[in-house]
Write a protein that binds this DNA or RNA. Sequence first.
DNA 1: AATGCAGTCAACCGCCACGTA
DNA 2: CTACGTGGCGGTTGACTGCAT
Length: 280
Amino acid sequence: MKIDKMPTNLKATEMSDWMQNMAAPPLLSYLEVGSWKFEQKNMVKTPTFDKNGVKKGAWSEDEDDKLRAYIQRYGHWNWRLLPKFAGLSRSGKSCRLRWVNYLRPDIKHGNFTKEEEDLIVELHKKLGNRWSEMAAYLPGRSDNEIKNRWHTHLKKRAKKDDADALENEHIEPDQPNNPKQNPVHQNPDLEFQQDVERLILTESPLSSSSTNFSPTAESFWPEPFQSDNDSIISSSDHNLFSTSSDFVYPVIPSQDVIIGDEFLWSSMDSYLEYGDQFMR
DNA sequence: AATGCAGTCAACCGCCACGTA
DNA sequence: CTACGTGGCGGTTGACTGCAT
């Protein structure tokens, strides 16, 4: 729901309550007043526009829908041009980020499990701040999410674990994990691989997808956008451009499809020739 | 009730690697 | 070899929440 004005006789806190009540489910999912958007739970400041008219800041539901619908139908053949075709006033980078970190169908939302957290700690010991590599071991989690989790939660835990381990080493120097006594520890790579395998293959809910586990991004987590490309060939429309209520898109003849230069050039040419007259 | 502060997370920015002309 | 465009990565920021005072 959108309205132009809010009550003028309310204090800030009262206004917030008023908004929350107005937007409370099941009546409304959100409420926009001027430059503010109030959702069922959170209040998100509406994005600003830079001098080039590019929108920045939090994404609206409407923008999410447009981006999701466009990519699911046509894939992301060029991030820079995608926002134009999808009818979004965003930079390509912003679209990519939003898709990769939030809208991708295989993305997992919600809390990290204990197993996932253990894995992140282990991976960080081995890989350092290579978040994207770490993400390859955690299907459904984006590098950004892992990075945030590390900085906000796991960094402290890892520090504490290290301190505890150091202390235990002094107290019980004959533990099996003592590198001097356990031959596995003489090979850090082997040790790391075994640790990761153990973490993933135990009671972890991830275990079903890791039957053929191999600690490489390529084999463990299929190219995340593979399915996008598969899904692009869908239109039988013969018009060069088609419009839906929300976005404009080139209609790609099936032989032009998707992967490779042919798609790019035909759609690019179409866009350059006809695109502007369809843009809003 | 108001204020301060730490924690959380989505999003941005700058840089780099890679592919192509 | 160089220049340029693009995608991807990691660091950082800023808005918001929740808790303590």
